[in-house]
C-alpha cells in the first residue's frame, strides 16, 4: 500500500470510529443503559430515554450515514482515490 492509500485508510478509520461512538451513544447508551435517568426529562408527553429508544436513535442514524457519505466522498477526492 503506498503512502497516500495508507493515509486515506487512516482518515477513513478515524471518521468511522467517531461516527460509531455516536451510533452507540444514541441507541445503546441513551435508549437502554441511561433510559431511567433520561426519562425524568420530558419533551411533550414523552420521556427523553423512551424517545431516543423509539424515535431519536433512528433520526441520529440517518444523520450519521449522511455525514459519512459526504465526508468519504470528500476524502476520495482529497486523496485522489475517487472513481472516474
Amino acid at each position: 500500500m503506498n503512502k497516500t492509500a495508507e493515509q486515506y485508510w487512516k482518515a477513513n478509520i478515524r471518521l468511522v470510529s467517531i461516527l460509531l461512538v455516536i451510533w452507540f451513544a444514541c441507541s445503546f447508551l441513551f435508549g437502554i443503559i441511561l433510559v431511567e435517568p433520561l426519562n425524568t426529562i420530558k419533551i411533550g408527553g414523552v420521556g427523553l430515554g423512551f424517545w431516543f429508544a423509539q424515535n431519536g436513535s433512528i433520526y441520529t442514524f440517518l444523520v450519521l450515514i449522511y455525514v459519512y457519505t459526504k465526508r468519504m466522498n470528500a476524502l476520495d477526492v482529497e486523496f485522489d482515490v475517487h472513481e472516474d
Partner: peptide, 24 residues
C-alpha cells in the same frame, strides 16, 4: 411498549454498520 424498542433500534441501526463497514 418500551421493551419493543429493540426492534426499532435494531432494525435501523444495522444500516449504519452496513454503510460504514461493508457496502462500499
Amino acid at each position: 411498549g418500551y421493551g419493543a424498542s429493540v426492534f426499532l433500534m435494531g432494525w435501523t441501526g444495522g444500516y449504519v454498520l452496513l454503510a460504514l463497514l461493508l457496502a462500499p
